[in-house]
């Protein structure tokens, strides 16, 4: 077992949608342990449960049965304030960009920092602008989402997810709405930034060209994991519980490194 504790440990996770007659199981006994600093790609046909698993790991959906330990905290039955606190330490990139239509690119990204408190405005502005420039949006800082192309919007969403330097990034088909080329650009950028910052990343994608970037590829079918390649040592069931989580302070506050790294 590594010294670093797994940022995500999923064990025996089941999930259902609907109630009564319409109740339908979407996940069956899913177990997964992620290594820190790796890129895991989640694959599988449409409806296989990828989004469900990602939103459960990302604290966006309530755990019904089984266990998800996120950054050392059990999500099953976790009270709302704990869940809110954990969400702040993640970056989530949605299938649709989900940008706030009334806010400019700069303001959208700033929302990713502001959630941590007011901080130093000058520093925050620098971090936001730096990241947007890095993603090739230096000329679009004050554009509203409506005036950006699909690829540009998704890049703003990437910047929003990464700006607070989160320990974990979840991306749900970040390229689905994009043409191949801009899709690949977005993923490559996400990968580069993640690698540089040692972020643990889970990405749902069908883009074959980036499979070689992955440390690990997990495939779901009908709510079950059917293949798991590039599986690492620590993916054995967790043996130690209650170990301090060394990754916890990382994503907390926007630091000057957010502005200068990369």
């Amino acid at each position: 077992m590594n010294a670093a504790v797994s940022p995500v440990v999923v064990a025996g996770l089941d999930h259902w949608f609907g109630a009564g007659e319409a109740r339908k199981q979407a996940l069956f006994d899913v177990s997964l342990v992620l290594d820190p600093g790796t890129l895991t790609i989640l694959m599988g046909p449409s409806g296989s449960g990828k989004t469900t698993l990602l939103t459960l790991m990302g604290c966006l959906r309530e755990v019904q049965a089984g266990s998800v330990r996120l950054l050392g905290t059990e999500l099953a039955g976790a009270p709302e304030p704990v869940r809110v606190g954990l969400r702040r330490r993640l970056g989530f990139i949605f299938q649709a960009h989900n940008l706030h239509a009334s806010l400019t690119a700069r303001q959208n990204v700033a929302m990713g920092l502001a959630v941590h408190g007011r901080g130093d405005p000058a520093l925050q502005t620098r971090a936001v602008e730096h990241l947007l420039r890095l993603l090739g949006l230096g000329e679009r800082l004050d554009y509203l989402p409506d005036n950006l192309s699909g690829g540009q919007k998704q890049r703003v969403a990437v910047a929003r997810a990464l700006v607070s330097n989160p320990a974990l990034v979840f991306a749900d088909e970040p390229t689905a709405a994009l043409d191949k080329e801009s899709g690949h650009t977005v993923v490559a950028m996400l990968r580069a930034l993640g690698r540089e910052r040692g972020t643990t990343t889970v990405m749902v994608t069908h883009d074959n060209r980036i499979l070689d970037l992955a440390d690990r590829i997990v495939t779901l079918e009908d709510g079950r994991i059917v293949s798991d390649t590039g599986r690492s040592r620590s993916s054995r069931p967790p043996v130690r519980a209650g170990v301090n989580d060394p990754t916890s302070p990382r994503g907390d506050l926007p630091s000057a490194t957010a502005a200068t790294s990369g």
């Binding site: 606190g85 969400r87 993640l90 989900n98 009334s102």
Partner: peptide
């Protein structure tokens, strides 16, 4: 609502 849901997913209470 969708925008609020996104902000909620980001950790806004």
């Amino acid at each position: 609502l969708r925008e609020y849901a996104t902000l909620k997913a980001m950790g806004y209470a």
